[in-house]
C-alpha cells in the first residue's frame, strides 16, 4: 500500500498541498493593509490578470483600486479604462490626486475590438494599469489575455459579473466583492496564486462618500413622500 502511495507521490500530476511554493511573482500593494495581509503580503499581481466579481457599481469597487491608480498615474505610466460602464468623473478623480493626463478612456464597438485593444494595451511597455469591463468572456479569450498580460508585466483588473464566480478562469487573482452593511466592502478571495483561497476581509470604505458614522444622524431626511415611484 505504502508502495502504491509513494509511487503516486512521485507522479508529477498529483498536487501536494503542503509543498506549496512561495510565489516569486512581483506584485503591487493594494494600499489596504487588511487586504494585503490576506493576500500574503503581496497585492495585485503584475503580469497576470486579476478579476473583481461584483453585482452592481457603486459598492466601492473603484476605491479598491484607487490607491493603485494614484500610484501608477504619479509614476507617469498610462492607465487605460476599457469600456467603463459609466463615465469616470473627472473632478472626483482629480480630487483624489489622480493625474488625469495619464488616463485614457477607450470605448470599443464589439467584442473582437475589445479583446484586440486589451491585448495591445497589455503588451505595451507604457501601460501601467488596465481596468476593463469585458462583459461576457469565453474561457479561451481569458487565456489569451493572460498570456498577453504575462508578456507585458502590467497589472490588469477585469470587472466581471458575480454570476461568473463558478466559471473556471486562468486569472491569477479572483476577488468577490459584496457590499457590507455599513458602507464597507467585503472581499472574498476565490483564487490566488501560491496559497489556499477562502480568506475574507472587510474594508471600510465609508470615506468614499465622506461619511462618518455620527454625521448620518444630522442628515436632513429628504421629503420622501413620492418614494418608490
Amino acid at each position: 500500500m505504502s508502495e502504491l502511495l509513494s509511487s503516486l507521490l512521485q507522479d508529477a500530476r498529483v498536487w501536494q498541498g503542503h509543498k506549496h511554493r512561495k510565489t516569486n511573482q512581483s506584485a503591487e500593494p493594494t494600499g489596504y493593509q487588511v487586504l494585503d495581509n490576506q493576500l500574503g503580503g503581496l497585492g495585485w499581481p503584475r503580469g497576470a490578470l486579476s478579476e473583481c466579481l461584483l453585482d452592481t457599481c457603486g459598492i466601492g469597487e473603484l476605491h479598491l483600486v484607487l490607491p493603485l491608480i494614484q500610484r501608477v498615474s504619479q509614476e507617469g505610466k498610462t492607465i487605460f479604462w476599457l469600456n467603463p460602464p459609466h463615465t469616470p468623473y473627472a473632478p472626483a478623480l482629480a480630487r483624489e490626486g489622480v493625474s488625469l493626463d495619464h488616463l485614457v478612456m477607450i470605448n470599443t464597438r464589439d467584442q473582437n475590438d475589445f479583446l484586440w485593444t486589451l491585448e495591445n494595451c497589455l503588451r505595451s511597455p507604457v501601460t501601467g494599469l488596465v481596468l476593463a469591463w469585458p462583459g461576457r468572456l469565453a474561457g479561451r479569450d481569458i487565456r489569451r489575455l493572460q498570456l498577453a498580460s504575462e508578456a507585458g508585466g502590467n497589472v490588469c483588473v477585469l470587472f466581471r459579473s458575480r454570476r461568473e464566480v463558478d466559471q473556471n478562469s486562468p486569472a491569477a487573482l479572483r476577488l468577490e466583492l459584496i457590499p457590507g452593511e455599513h458602507q464597507d466592502l467585503k472581499v472574498n478571495i476565490i483564487k490566488r496564486r501560491g496559497s489556499w483561497p477562502g480568506q475574507r476581509c472587510s474594508l471600510a470604505l465609508g470615506q468614499r462618500a465622506d461619511i462618518t458614522n455620527k454625521e448620518s444622524s444630522q442628515v436632513v431626511q429628504g421629503p420622501w413622500s413620492g418614494a418608490g415611484r
Partner: peptide, 14 residues
C-alpha cells in the same frame, strides 16, 4: 496638481 481641497466631494462614476 489640482488643489484637491477646493473641489467638492463627488462620486467617481457619473
Amino acid at each position: 496638481r489640482i488643489a484637491s481641497g477646493q473641489l467638492p466631494h463627488r462620486p467617481l462614476w457619473l
